[in-house]
């Protein structure tokens, strides 16, 4: 079952029947907003389903299915605004409820964004070959939201792990491997070890201690604790592959979380993703030493 089918399964049967056919291949997201017609994102543009507006109860039902009727078990990720369901990330918006100052859940749900991950084989072959030639320097994948950073990271991991490098993957949101009861949903290569559902800082320590990796890979460094973890891992003799939200290096330098990483020259290469229309270009650049 591909990720698009998994995403479709989350939708109410009435909508699926209304569509009369499957969502088009290449669908990147399904957007559901209370009181508005559901829509899907393809090639950067949103197109609406021809069906009745979304009701809050339907959004609740989708979340119930995604969490296996266990909102409490998803509380940690929900407090950060998303849920993971078999490798699919579901962004959640609504009225948050607080407990001891921290978000404990959502009283009301107003929107959901179901992001559909894809495996795109071959997109990073050239970059991977150059990285291998250069001894796999610490590399940061940079792109804007929706540009395909996770897809690129997944593909880089696969190619490098297939080349024989031992890669420890901290897959905090289970988006890289899309692990479920039947195993990983995406191939991350021959020599990769995947740790899912663990905070990056803890996960990196666990992998370093237990799995003897040559490279540590993680998606989206967003919190100060993620940056700290990268700084810690740097001194441990392993390479680092990570991704970051930004349009380019200039924008990245303005973000406090990255300032220290860039000042300390933790990364020596970056893979920039540029998107024009439906096309994506991947450019590997050396960062000044």
């Amino acid at each position: 079952m591909d990720q698009l089918q998994i995403a479709e399964e989350l939708l109410p049967a009435a909508w699926r029947q209304a569509c009369e056919q499957r969502l088009p291949l290449g669908t990147e997201e399904i957007r559901l907003r209370c009181g508005k017609a559901p829509s899907y994102l393809i090639g950067g543009k949103e197109q609406s389903f021809r069906t009745s507006p979304v009701e809050e109860e339907q959004l609740q039902r989708i979340l119930e299915k995604a969490t296996g009727a266990s909102m409490h078990a998803a509380a940690a990720s929900l407090s950060q605004g998303y849920l993971s369901y078999r490798g699919i990330r579901i962004g959640v918006c609504g009225s948050a409820s607080l407990q001891n100052g921290a978000i404990s859940g959502f009283r009301r749900i107003s929107s959901l964004a179901i992001r559909i991950p894809r495996a795109c084989r071959g997109i990073c072959d050239e970059a991977a070959a150059r990285l291998l030639r250069d001894g796999v320097p610490n590399t940061l994948i940079i792109g804007r939201p929706g540009d395909g950073k996770t897809t690129a990271l997944r593909e880089l991991i696969r190619v490098l792990a297939d080349s024989g490098l031992r890669i420890g993957v901290v897959d905090e949101r289970n988006e890289l491997a899309a692990m479920d009861a039947s195993g990983p949903g995406f191939d991350l290569g021959r020599c990769s070890d995947v740790l899912t559902g663990v905070d990056k800082r803890v996960g990196m320590t666990m992998l370093l201690r237990g799995m003897n990796p040559q490279i540590l890979a993680m998606d989206e460094i967003t919190r100060p604790s993620d940056a700290e973890a990268v700084l810690q891992a740097r001194g441990c003799g392993v390479g680092i592959l990570a991704s970051a939200h930004a349009a380019g290096m200039e924008e990245l330098r303005q973000r406090p979380v990255y300032r220290q990483l860039l000042e300390q020259k933790v990364f020596s290469a970056c893979l920039l993703i540029r998107r024009s229309g439906g096309e994506r270009r991947y450019t590997l650049e050396r960062l000044g030493s």
Binding site: T67, G68, M71, H72, A75, S97, Q99, S104
Partner: peptide, 10 residues
């Protein structure tokens, strides 16, 4: 209530 709310409420 089961599965829908935070653990303490359940």
């Amino acid at each position: 209530s089961l599965g829908r709310y935070e653990l303490s409420a359940q």
